[in-house]
């Protein structure tokens, strides 16, 4: 576990930054903005009525956004973009650390299997995701109680909130894949933010175009939080797609990490 501990020590500040950012976003949106939306429903509805329908759809504005669950579904995309950016950043940084610092020789010439190195690094990223989403979930549940929301129920709300972690897993796996396959890495921050924004842009395509096929290329849309709120289930096909994307990205990254030549 020496690689795990080393990577965790190098990464904890970023984990803390991600966790605090998401906790603040959740507290501000759910604890600060939701009560205002709820209390000013008629005025807000008047404002929103002036929005072009597709523009409103692109930003997740629905008639249901005045309930706690509906508002959560509305802000999901913003929580997802934060999760995606940090997930991609962590995948890129942890798996690309030796490439960034040009010290692959140092690590790979040590008596450790490459497979073992890969999974210790994966465990570090997973730790960050679990901590960030655990704190986020705690904050979201605390706000839910604070604002007196009773619907959706706790179980259903937890499942809705877990969508954010699901998105983060996908982007962390994609970050790891890019880090392993890229011959050279330079700015992982720019790349991570770019991936997160790309995820956001892709998530706007299905509602803007009314073309559901775009959901297949939009990882944010794999978790239909609105459907979870109204029907208590996610779309199985997209859940499987999300899982498969994670598994395939990690498997390809793992094979490449184990087999590829280390450049001098």
């Amino acid at each position: 576990m020496n690689v795990y501990l080393f990577e965790f020590r190098r990464q904890w500040r970023s984990f803390l930054a991600g966790t605090l950012t998401q906790a603040i976003v959740a507290a501000v949106f759910l604890g600060g903005m939701y009560p205002m939306y709820h209390d000013s429903q008629k005025d807000v509805e008047k404002v929103l009525a002036g929005f072009p329908p597709r523009f409103a759809a692109a930003f997740g504005i629905t008639k249901d956004m005045f309930s706690f669950g509906g508002f959560f579904a509305f802000i999901y995309v913003y929580l997802a973009i934060v999760a995606a950016i940090f997930g991609a950043l962590w995948g890129l940084k942890v798996f690309g650390r030796e490439k960034l610092d040009r010290c692959m020789d140092f690590l790979i010439s040590k008596p450790a299997s490459r497979m073992g190195l890969f999974w210790q690094k994966a465990l570090v990223v997973l730790t960050g995701i679990v901590v960030m989403n655990g704190v986020f979930l705690g904050v979201a549940l605390w706000v839910r109680t604070s604002v007196g929301a009773t619907s959706p129920g706790v179980g259903q709300f937890v499942l809705m909130a877990l969508a954010v972690g699901g998105v983060q897993l996908i982007f962390a796996a994609l970050g790891a894949l890019i880090a392993v396959l890229a011959p050279r890495l330079h700015s992982v921050t720019g790349l991570g933010v770019g991936l997160g924004i790309l995820g956001f842009v892709l998530s706007a395509l299905p509602p803007m175009t009314n073309e559901s096929n775009f959901k297949a290329i939009s990882p944010f849309s794999y978790f239909n939080v609105s459907q979870m709120q109204t029907q208590g289930t996610y779309e199985t096909g997209y859940l499987v797609t999300a899982g498969a994307l994670c598994v395939v990205a990690l498997a390809v990254a793992c094979v490449a990490y184990v087999r590829s030549d280390v450049k001098a």
Binding site: R10, D101, C103, D105, F106, S109, K110, P111, A112
Partner: peptide, 20 residues
Amino acid sequence: ERKEMLAHVGYLPSEVFYYD
């Protein structure tokens, strides 16, 4: 048997780079 081998090998590369 790469892992077992490397436990008994010390290596100094021509160019030395370490973590920032």
